[in-house]
C-alpha cells in the first residue's frame, strides 16, 4: 500500500461527505416536515404489518395481480434479450468493427439512461394503455443494461484461446461462435437470471400508471387508506421477489466455475 493509495481514498471520502452535507442544505427544514397526521399514520402502517387482510377476495386479486406482474416481467425480459444480444455483440470494442460498435453503444446507453417507469408513461401517453406498452417499457432499459454487460463479458474472455484460433487462421465470426460466446455464456446467463429478479420489482411498479399488477393494487389500497390490504399485496410482492431470488441464486451457483 503506497501513501498515494491512502490519499486518493481520503479525497473520495471527503468528497462523498461533502456531497451529503450539500444535499442536506437542499431540504427545506421547516417545522412541518412531518405533517399533522404523520405520527398516527406511522403507527397505523406498522400496526398493519402483523394484520394483513386475508379475505378470499383480496387473495384472489393478489394471485391474479401476481401473475400479471410475472407476465410483464417475463415478456419484458424476452424483449430485452432480443435487443441486448445483437447490440451487445456489436458493441464489444474490437478494432475491426469500430463502425458498428460506436452506434451500438450509443443505442444501449440511450436505452438504459431512461428509467422503465418513465418509458412506460411515455409509451402509454403516446400509444395508449396496453400491456404491450408495459413490455416495451420494461424491455428497452433492461435491453440497454443487459447489452452493456454482454459486451463487457464477451470482451473479457481469456485471450489465449482466441489468439490461438486467430493464428490458426479462423475468421472473427468463427472465433466468436467457437470461443468467445461459449466462454462468456455462463456469466451471461447468470447475469440475465439476476436481472429477472429486478424485472419482477420493476414490473410491479409499472402499474402505477394504470397497467395492472401488484403495484396497482398497492396504490388502490393506499388510496382507500387500507393499510392491511396494502401489506397483503406487499407480502405477495416480497414472496415473488424471494422466490425468483432463490431460483436465480440456485441457477447462478451452478453456473459459476
Amino acid at each position: 500500500m503506497t501513501p498515494r493509495f491512502f490519499e486518493s481514498r481520503r479525497v473520495l471520502t471527503l468528497l462523498l461527505l461533502a456531497a451529503l452535507a450539500w444535499s442536506l442544505t437542499a431540504v427545506s427544514w421547516r417545522g412541518d416536515l412531518i405533517h399533522s397526521g404523520g405520527f398516527r399514520a406511522i403507527g397505523e402502517i406498522f400496526a398493519a404489518i402483523v394484520r394483513p387482510e386475508l379475505s378470499a377476495d383480496t387473495l384472489a386479486i393478489a394471485f391474479r395481480a401476481s401473475w400479471t406482474t410475472v407476465a410483464y416481467a417475463a415478456a419484458g425480459m424476452t424483449l430485452a434479450l432480443a435487443l441486448a444480444f445483437p447490440l451487445g455483440v456489436l458493441a464489444r470494442s474490437t478494432t475491426h468493427q469500430l463502425a458498428a460498435s460506436i452506434p451500438a453503444r450509443a443505442f444501449l446507453a440511450f436505452f438504459r439512461s431512461v428509467h422503465e417507469l418513465v418509458w412506460a408513461w411515455l409509451f402509454v401517453a403516446a400509444l395508449g394503455l396496453s400491456p404491450v406498452a408495459a413490455v416495451l417499457a420494461l424491455g428497452i432499459p433492461y435491453g440497454g443494461i443487459l447489452g452493456r454487460i454482454y459486451a463487457e463479458l464477451l470482451q473479457d474472455v481469456p485471450q489465449a484461446p482466441i489468439r490461438a484460433l486467430r493464428t490458426a487462421g479462423a475468421s472473427e465470426w468463427r472465433i466468436f461462435w467457437h470461443a468467445r460466446l461459449p466462454m462468456a455464456l455462463p456469466d451471461m446467463l447468470s447475469y440475465t437470471f439476476y436481472r429477472f429478479e429486478c424485472a419482477i420489482r420493476s414490473s410491479a411498479i409499472m402499474s402505477f400508471i394504470g397497467l395492472g399488477g401488484l403495484g396497482r393494487e398497492i396504490q388502490l389500497s393506499l388510496d382507500d387508506i387500507a393499510f392491511g390490504r396494502m401489506w397483503t399485496f406487499l407480502y405477495f410482492l416480497i414472496a415473488l421477489v424471494l422466490i425468483v431470488d432463490l431460483w436465480s441464486t440456485a441457477v447462478r451457483r451452478r453456473l459459476a466455475p
Partner: peptide
C-alpha cells in the same frame, strides 16, 4: 435487508408521503 429491498422505491415513496410533507425528504 430482504424487506427493504423487495419493496420498490416507488412504493416506499407512496408510504413516505403519508408521513412526511411533500418535498425532497
Amino acid at each position: 435487508f430482504t424487506l427493504t429491498r423487495s419493496v420498490p422505491e416507488l412504493v416506499w415513496a407512496m408510504i413516505a408521503v403519508f408521513i412526511f410533507s411533500p418535498g425532497i425528504l
